[in-house]
Design a protein around this nucleic acid. Structure first.
Length: 586
RNA sequence: GCCCUCGUAGCUCAGCAGGAUAGAGCAAUCGCCUCCUAAGCGAUAGGUCACAGGUUCGACUCCUGUCGAGGGCGCCA
């Protein structure tokens, strides 16, 4: 609809340009907008005002000329010039009549498009360390990342969804050591669990598996383990030194194979749990990319060598630094530590280099807002490697603060007591959780009201939209029960019956859907879609209250039923894009 | 101290590459079920768009500064 008007205006501009009325070179692509006030018609353009300066003419004069050059169309009833030079388009009352059969014919595909032209886009999201179950903070990134992926896919991009598994590094060693110590406790060894260890119940579970399957094959005495280990924090020492000492002790006492086994057991158990959790949340991936594989394949070294070759590396205090300040970062960053180990940042450089080497034209990282300081250095690295840093888009997702009964829900990872994503799903359901997470733009701090998400009332936007869908299903069910048959052949339906203002409003909003999907996808703003679905549901509920559908006047009834069928289709498509179910009954 | 994000109605938020009188939902007040699910609908009331400058035909929207909120500034991952 919008694009059709756009074409009309473009044609008029071309005409005026070839007539010499407008300069040839500076023709803008006209921007057509929906009007806010229907007294201004249905669509409006400010193109005459935009052209006023380059054409050195009065905007109203240009608008007049555009009107005269405008090709005729049965879509438009009349146009007028208003205010400083707006051109307002009033649609013909028949303009939307073709819309309903079009929606019903397109069905699932209504709203989908090919703007993305098959461009390959990679979206990486969640990527939480596999050191414990996902918590509600990860949930927002999960919902957001998966909806953005689905939106991009709906508008024709070739989307690749990826989870970067941080399966290397110190945190994983702490996990492995934590598991081992819990296992020893199950072997009846008395010990003081380190302050910096992972204390969640899931660690006990993994330890129990180890104990059940391997009895005491991994047992060592408390004395040999804690001998000469630096004191822990509660004992007046340094908790980092304490845990590092324990990690080294675990490695030396267990030996490579047994240590690796405990490590893998912890990693895989948790990773399986995360995978399962996300899948039940409707979040799926094309690939789980291992950080360790980057080191093992030599990709990290390759990245470092490429940086060195471009002259951006230098040595200082035994470590190897990347001169990221040359690219606007606050300070230079270490890539190889003085102990010879590469940093997490080095892996990340290799990972992003690999993403671009895999041929993605666009790479989107969905990160927690706490990582924002990390963005400049990754972009700096890409630039230093001679890649195009603008191909990388980092979307920072702010934290969600949970509220229950008007009170902030306290979360603490340290004590192992936090609200997990799994608990959230159980409490409010996956539908409500996803919808709520995506209802706000990602950079917005979010208050997540658990009571509201659970409430089954119109206050709850999820149920409000779903109820619209269920209500339409219910009408159709009623029709069947009352043995009311209705016309389904669009050619046999008289859409001019639909002349109530509620019907016009509903049709106008149905026609907006493809524009909404496009905007939500291209701007990575799924909240646009949740807001739209709320508005559309409101239009429907209002209509429902004002008019009956199952009436005796068959011509009107047929037309109305087609209209609500089209509405149901759009609600279904929209909910589907959000990964929220569209129930037939509630 | 430096950097990032945010600051719109009592509360939670929209406001689409600057555009015509700033919009919803809660909460408040008042109405609507002999009728397709009241998990619904309607009406009223509520705002100097944090503040101060600037850019222009026009600014909630762009720029600068001030104030306020949250977050980030490791040879951690």
């Amino acid at each position: 609809m919008k694009t059709q008007i756009e074409q009309l205006v473009s044609a008029a501009l071309q005409q005026l340009a070839s007539d010499g009325f407008l300069p040839q070179d500076a023709l803008p692509s006209p921007k057509i907008e929906r009007t806010r006030d229907n007294r201004h018609g249905d669509f409006a353009t400010n193109v005459a005002m935009v052209l006023a300066k380059p054409a050195r003419k009065n905007p109203r004069e240009i608008a007049q000329a555009i009107l005269e050059a405008l090709p005729t169309s049965d879509l438009v009833e009349r146009c007028e010039i208003a205010g400083p030079g707006f051109i307002n388009f009033h649609l013909a009352s028949t303009a939307y009549h073709r819309l309903i059969p079009y929606i019903l014919e397109q069905a699932h595909d209504y709203g989908r498009s090919q703007i993305g032209a098959g461009k390959r886009v990679q979206v990486e999201y969640v990527s939480a360390n596999p050191t414990g179950p996902l918590h509600v903070g990860h949930g927002r990134g999960a919902a957001y990342g998966s909806v953005v992926s689905d939106l991009l896919s709906a508008v024709g991009f070739d989307v690749h969804r990826e989870y970067y598994v941080n399966d290397a590094g110190r945190q994983m060693d702490i996990l492995a050591t934590s598991v081992w110590l819990r296992y020893l406790e199950l072997c009846d060894e008395a010990l003081t669990f380190p302050a910096n260890g992972y204390k969640g119940d899931y660690v006990w579970d993994i330890a129990a598996t180890l104990h059940r399957d391997h009895a005491e094959a991994y047992k060592h005495t408390t004395e040999e383990i804690f001998k000469d280990i630096p004191a822990d924090e509660p004992a007046g020492g340094d908790k980092e030194a304490h845990i590092d000492g324990l990690i080294e002790r675990a490695k030396s006492l267990l030996g490579d194979n047994r240590y690796r086994f405990v490590f893998e057991l912890g990693l895989n158990t948790i990773l399986d749990d995360i995978r399962d959790d996300l899948s039940l949340f409707g979040v799926n991936y094309d690939q789980w990319y291992s950080e360790r594989s980057l080191t093992e394949s030599g990709a990290v070294n390759k990245a470092i060598e490429r940086l060195r070759a471009s002259g951006y590396l230098y040595e200082k205090a035994g470590a190897l630094w990347f001169r990221s300040t040359d690219f606007g970062d606050e300070k230079d960053r270490v890539v190889v530590r003085d102990n010879g180990q590469t940093t997490y940042f080095a892996s990340d450089i290799a990972y992003h280099m690999d993403k671009l080497e895999r041929g993605f034209e666009r790479v989107i990282d969905v990160w927690g807002a706490d990582h924002h300081g990390y963005v400049p250095r990754v972009k700096a690295a890409l630039e230093a490697l001679g890649d195009d840093p603008t191909k990388l888009d980092v979307l920072l997702v702010q934290f969600a603060i949970l509220y229950r009964g008007g009170e902030k829900v306290q979360m603490s990872t340290r004590s192992g007591q936090f609200v997990t994503l799994r608990e959230l799903r159980k409490e409010v359901g996956a539908d409500a959780a996803r919808f709520f997470y995506v209802m706000r733009k990602c950079e917005q701090h979010m208050d997540f009201d658990l009571d509201l998400a659970k409430s089954q009332s119109s206050d709850n936007p999820v149920y409000y939209v779903q109820y619209g869908h269920a209500r339409i299903c219910s009408v159709l069910l009623q029709a069947a029960e009352q043995k009311i048959t209705f016309e389904t052949n669009p050619a046999a339906i008289d859409y001019s019956q639909l002349n109530e203002s509620h019907e016009q409003d509903l049709m106008a909003n149905l026609s907006r859907y493809p524009e909404i999907v496009e905007a939500a996808a291209l701007n990575e703003e799924p909240h646009t879609l949740t807001h739209y679905l709320r508005e559309l549901s409101n239009d429907f509920h209002t209509y429902y209250n004002a008019h009956k559908f199952l009436i005796d006047d068959t011509a009107l009834r047929d037309a109305r039923l087609q209209l609500i069928l089209a509405t149901r289709q759009v609600l279904r498509n929209g909910l589907n894009l959000l990964g929220v179910s569209a129930p037939e009954k509630m």
